[in-house]
Computed example of a mutant assay.
Amino acid sequence: MTVTLITGANKGIGFETARQLLERGHTVYIGARDAERGEKAAAELGAHCVPLDVTDDASVSNALAVIESAEGRLDVLVHNAGILADGPVDGPAALRAFDTNAVGIVRVTEAALPLLRKSSNPTVVTVSSSMGSFWAVTNPGRPESGMPLALYAASKAAATMLTVQYAKSQPGIKFNAVEPGTTATDMTAAFGIGRPVTESAKVVVRLATLDADGPTGTLQDELGTLNW
C-alpha cells in the first residue's frame, strides 16, 4: 500500500485528493489543524487522521511520529494546507501568510524526509498557484494579472521556489508544484468563481502518482509545465 499524508485535507481540494487516492488504493493520512473536523472527514472517507498544524513545530513532529509508528515510511506527501491572506496587508498578515504557505512546507518536509527516504518511490507535491508566477501575473492575457493578492502571490512564489530547491537538494525524491486550477472552495467563495474540486484534485493526483522516472522540480497545471 502507498502511504500518503495530505496536509489541510479535511475539506476542499485536500479532501477530494484524499478521496481519489483512496480509490487508487493508498493508505491516506489526513492532516488537519482542527482534530475534530479531521476525524469527521477521515471517518467519511475511510482514511486516518493526524492532528497537524503546519505552523507548529511540535504538531508537525507529532504527526510524523504517528505515521512512523504505524507505517514505518511515507511514500507521498501532499502540501495542501494554505490560506488566501486577502485582508489588509501588514506585517502580522504577511507573517501569517508566509508561515502557513511557505514556512509550513519547510517544517513538514524536514520532518518527513527520514520517512520519505524509506520509500521506493518517494513523491512530494506542493499545491502552489500560478499567482506566484511572475510570467502569469505580468501577462495581460492571464486572469492572474488582474488579481491583487500580494501576500498570497508572494507566499506561493516562495512555495514553488522551495519545491524546486528541494528537488535539487534531494535528488532521490520527486518534488513538484502544482497549479490545480481555480476551484470553488471556501478560499474562493468571496469571488464566486471556480470549478468543482473533483476536477482540480485530478491535477494533484496525477503528480502524486508519478512513476519512479517521473519529472521533478517543476510547476505544472493540467496541461503540463508552466512558466514562472
Rank of each mutant, 00 (worst) to 15 (best):
S130I: 03
F134H: 14
S133I: 12
A159Q: 04
E144L: 08
A159E: 04
V28C: 03
G194S: 13
P196Y: 12
A159C: 03
Q220A: 12
K168T: 12
P88K: 14
T160Q: 10
E179Q: 09
E36N: 10
P122V: 03
N227E: 08
L115A: 15
D53M: 00
H26M: 13
G25K: 03
D213T: 09
A41C: 04
I193S: 09
P196E: 07
P140E: 13
G31R: 00
N101E: 11
M147P: 04
A111S: 15
T123H: 02
T100I: 01
S119Q: 04
S145H: 12
L52S: 02
P140R: 07
P180V: 06
T138I: 07
V205I: 05
S133C: 11
T198W: 13
V76W: 13
G132H: 08
T218H: 15
V78D: 07
D56G: 00
G224S: 11
A167T: 14
A63R: 00
L64P: 00
A158V: 07
A47I: 05
V66H: 04
Q170L: 10
P196S: 06
T209Q: 05
L162W: 11
F15K: 15
A102L: 15
I67E: 07
F134E: 06
T182N: 06
S120R: 08
T123N: 02
A167C: 15
K168F: 12
A9K: 00
K11Y: 05
L74F: 01
V50I: 03
V89I: 15
A85H: 15
D75F: 06
R19L: 05
S128H: 03
P148Q: 10
V28P: 01
Y29E: 01
V137P: 14
G194K: 11
M147Y: 10
A9I: 01
